Simulated scan of single mutants.
Amino acid sequence: MDAELPSLIQRCRSLGLRRTKALEQLFATLLESPRPMTLSELAESPRLADQCDKATVFRLLQRLENHAIIRRLGLHERAAYFTLLLPDRHHDYLICTSCGSIEAIKAPCPVHALEEEIRESTGFQNLYHELEFFGTCPACA
């Protein structure tokens, strides 16, 4: 986490976003989390609960999502989950269409080779992909 936080802050600065304590605490919370987190989980986390209210966390998440720093996951009618988009940390997810639970897929991503081929053939820079599988989890089945 120590090396990733300054890199994230620098990315924000290069995009014209202000460095605030809430921004730093949001990044630290997401970096420490083993899974994506909901808005409520983030707003109630020990690092952010005393820093700002839920509406501020939501606005911050929206701004970061618009700048492709945060990825929003989940079903539209369910609570959204948020995770960082980091160049060296990639996860694909399984999402339950019944309860909305989300878990990272613990298998190699089959799309990385295709992503590299597309990058080379098109010249696109900063290329990334998002892969989500939807189904019914064992608990709901």
Rank of each mutant, 00 (worst) to 15 (best):
F133V: 11
K54C: 11
N66Q: 14
Y128D: 14
L85G: 10
I118F: 04
H112A: 11
G123A: 03
H129G: 04
L75W: 03
C137M: 07
A49E: 08
N126I: 07
T83F: 10
S45W: 05
H129I: 04
E44I: 06
H91P: 05
D92R: 12
C96D: 04
I70Q: 02
E24S: 12
M37H: 11
S40P: 08
D92F: 05
D92N: 12
L75P: 02
E120S: 09
P6H: 01
T20H: 02
L17D: 07
T136K: 13
D92V: 10
F82M: 05
C12P: 03
L61K: 01
E44L: 10
R35K: 14
D53C: 05
I95C: 03
E77G: 06
E103T: 11
P46S: 10
R13K: 12
S121V: 04
H67N: 15
S101K: 14
S14Y: 07
R35P: 08
L42G: 01
F27A: 00
L42M: 00
A22L: 06
T38M: 00
Q10F: 07
E44D: 13
I69F: 00
L15D: 09
S40T: 14
I118P: 00
A79E: 10
T136D: 09
L23V: 03
Q25M: 12
L127V: 00
L5D: 01
L73F: 04
H91T: 15
Y81P: 02
L114R: 12
M37W: 07
E44F: 13
I9V: 11
L73I: 03
E120R: 03
L114C: 12
L39I: 02
R13F: 04
R89V: 12
E44H: 15
E65R: 13
H112D: 15
L31K: 00
P87C: 03
K54R: 11
T20V: 00
H129F: 09
S14N: 13
P34Q: 14
L127Q: 02
F124E: 07
N66W: 07
L39F: 04
L84M: 08
S40K: 14
C140Q: 04
D50P: 12
A80D: 02
I102E: 01
H112K: 11
R59N: 13
E132S: 08
A28F: 02
V111P: 02
C99E: 01
A80K: 04
V111G: 10
Q62G: 14
L85I: 14
R89T: 08
R35A: 15
G16M: 08
F133H: 02
H67A: 14
L86N: 06
F124V: 06
L30M: 03
D88Q: 06
R119L: 01
A49Y: 11
D92Y: 09
A113P: 06
L131D: 11
I69S: 03
L17C: 06
V111S: 08
E132P: 05
E32Y: 05
Q62Y: 15
R19W: 00
F134C: 06
A22W: 09
L5K: 04
Q25H: 08
T29R: 01
A49L: 15
H76L: 15
L31H: 00
R59A: 15
C12I: 04
A139E: 15
A104V: 07
H91A: 09
L5H: 02
A104N: 14
P87L: 06
S98N: 13
S98K: 09
A79D: 10
R71C: 07
F134V: 10
P108G: 15
H129P: 07
S121M: 03
